[in-house]
Design a protein around this nucleic acid. Structure first.
Length: 252
DNA sequence: ATGGCTTCATAGTGAAGA
């Protein structure tokens, strides 16, 4: 089963890119973040006509998550059960025997902002919930925009980014804490090209200069066998791209 | 240079993203 994650930065703007990528990649499951779409306006019919099932949870202007799947989805969960949050950042469903959790972890803005404190509190709640969820579902995949570059090798300029939001030690500690629950970074299970990123700044020709960060991830529990994981840069080269590009993994 | 670019929103000297 091929699973993937993509922060599309508005599903309305990127629907054609998503449909094309589903066709080309033949992904079974695609987790989306930043749909920026209220549920009433979600392009459900277009995706269903293409043969997919979809669950989604959105709001106007900001955030919003969805799971697109070739297979039936059950036990759909909306939001973190242990964290009151007006922001639509989590949706989970069981596909075959795998618990698929789609997350849009808060950005945090900067380490001295209130939004950073919200991010750390949010991560603590996610950690607590994951601990339960992993007991319930031995086969678990956590996919999404983590807004965390786990290590310096995931950052184009580690000196410039040192201590900054997305790279700060508390954020990286939260990422390691998820690994310590038994979740493995699928991307790092394989030999990968140097300087591979999943996001590039729209400004200053970030993509052309490969000024990027690897902040979109797929974490897998030990019971999930993974045979491949890669970041597909092709959609970032399209006209009017999202600033993120898809990350996918082949699992069994 | 607290910018740059893109989105949604509104008509803001905008907000938020990363």
């Amino acid at each position: 089963m091929k699973i993937a994650t993509w922060n599309v930065n508005s599903l309305k703007v990127r629907l054609q890119h998503v449909q094309s990528w589903l066709m080309e990649s033949q992904a079974d499951v695609l987790c989306l973040q930043e749909t920026k779409t209220e549920d009433a306006n979600f392009p459900l019919a277009e995706l269903q006509q293409a043969g997919y099932q979809v669950v989604f949870c959105g709001q106007k202007t900001y955030n919003g998550v969805a799971i697109i799947s070739k297979h039936a989805m059950t036990d759909v969960q909306y939001g973190l059960p242990n964290f009151e949050d007006a922001q639509k950042r989590v949706i989970a469903a069981t596909v075959n025997d795998v618990r698929v959790i789609c997350v849009y972890i808060p950005n945090g803005e900067s380490v001295d902002s209130d939004k950073y404190q919200y991010k750390l509190a949010w991560l603590a709640a996610l950690q607590a919930w994951l601990k339960d969820e992993m007991q319930r579902y031995p086969k678990l995949a956590l996919l999404g925009d983590y807004n965390i570059a786990p290590e310096d090798r995931d950052v184009h300029d580690p000196v410039a980014w040192a201590g900054k939001v997305l790279c700060s030690e508390p954020e990286r500690a939260a990422f390691r804490a998820m690994q310590q629950l038994g979740l493995r970074d699928a991307f790092r299970l394989f030999e990968q090209p140097e300087k591979t990123y999943s996001w590039w700044d729209y400004r200053m020709m970030g993509f052309r200069r490969n000024h990027g960060l690897r902040i979109d991830h797929i974490l897998l529990s030990a019971a999930v066998t993974c045979t491949a994981c890669s970041i597909d840069k092709a959609p970032r080269k399209l006209e009017r791209p999202s600033d993120h590009t898809p990350v996918w993994a082949e699992i069994a």
